[in-house]
């Protein structure tokens, strides 16, 4: 008993003060990507730019003469940054990546992600208490592991009234990870149907948003879309816990 108390004191208080203070991220963290407006405009018309060839996830593409980076597919591996001979692609320390609409995850030179909170009624319902049922549908256990990290003392998710719960009947929303391959489609849909209305759906990670690396595989893993209409997209592979927390707090209008 006393040794446990002594150990508790030794292990110290570890909860970060985010969102009151900015989080500490590693200096090599690859967050919000930035494309250089000048250089990328000229490169987009050369065929095909090295960043497109280097991307493992088909996240870089050219659209009407402009370079685009789809954060809904991006694994944040940094290959495009390394491949660009002009230093025009850069991953910044920006951790606030989430969006309400799929199209808002597509970045270009000068295009930033756009995020808005739930409407007043939904905020009134869930703003101070949001219980989530997590479903891994083909997830590789990285998104799942970092969802678990949110519940540790470091992030202490429940101080915001957000919790992962065991039963979909107790849940206000679904936290989906993984590309939703054929064999998990029914399990995911049955879980969703068990949720009372109104509910929110959160697609977490490149896989759940778009199928990510698995979108072209023969198990038709296209992510939560088009079957579901997520209310929140949290990009990453996996998203840093701060990114996920930031997205949920913005959704609830708490940041």
């Amino acid at each position: 008993m006393f040794s446990i108390i002594a150990q508790r004191l030794r292990q110290k208080k570890r909860t970060i003060s985010f969102p009151a203070a900015a989080p500490t991220l590693p200096d090599r963290f690859r967050g919000l990507p930035e494309l250089d407006p000048g250089i990328c405009a000229t490169c987009a018309v050369s065929c095909p730019p090295p960043c497109i060839l280097a991307c493992p996830a088909k996240a870089m593409f050219e659209e009407n003469g402009a370079m685009r980076l789809d954060m809904g597919r991006c694994t944040f591996c940094g290959s495009c940054e390394n491949a660009c001979p002009h230093g025009a692609v850069r991953f910044t320390q920006g951790y606030s990546l989430s969006a309400r609409h799929r199209d808002d995850l597509i970045l270009g030179p000068g295009l930033l992600p756009r995020m808005e909170a739930l409407d007043t009624r939904m905020r009134k319902l869930f703003g101070r208490s949001l219980k989530l049922r997590q479903v891994s549908a083909g997830g590789c256990n990285a998104c799942e592991a970092d969802a678990n990290v949110l519940t540790t003392v470091v992030f202490d998710l429940s101080r915001f009234g957000i919790d992962f719960v065991a039963s979909p009947r107790h849940a206000d929303g679904l936290y989906i990870t993984g590309p939703v391959p054929e064999n998990m489609r029914e399990g995911l849909m049955l879980t969703l149907e068990a949720l009372p209305l109104p509910r929110i759906i959160i697609a977490v990670g490149a896989c759940a948003i778009s199928g990510g690396l698995f979108a072209d595989l023969d198990t038709s893993a296209k992510g939560a879309l088009p079957h579901l209409e997520p209310d929140l997209f949290i990009p990453g592979c996996p998203p840093h816990p701060v990114t996920a927390l930031d997205g949920m707090l913005r959704l609830l209008g708490r940041i």
């Binding site: 060839l53 280097a54 991307c55 493992p56 996830a57 694994t75 591996c77 290959s79 891994s136 083909g138 997830g139 590789c140 990285a142 993984g178 590309p179 391959p181 054929e182 064999n183 998990m184 399990g187 690396l213 698995f214 072209d216 595989l217 023969d218 198990t219 893993a221 592979c237």
Partner: peptide, 25 residues
Amino acid sequence: GYQHRGVERALPGFPGPRTLALMET
């Protein structure tokens, strides 16, 4: 089998950037 994504069937061919990314996941 619920997590089956079909990764092995996607590997034949010349290795490219996606091959390593599939291995990492």
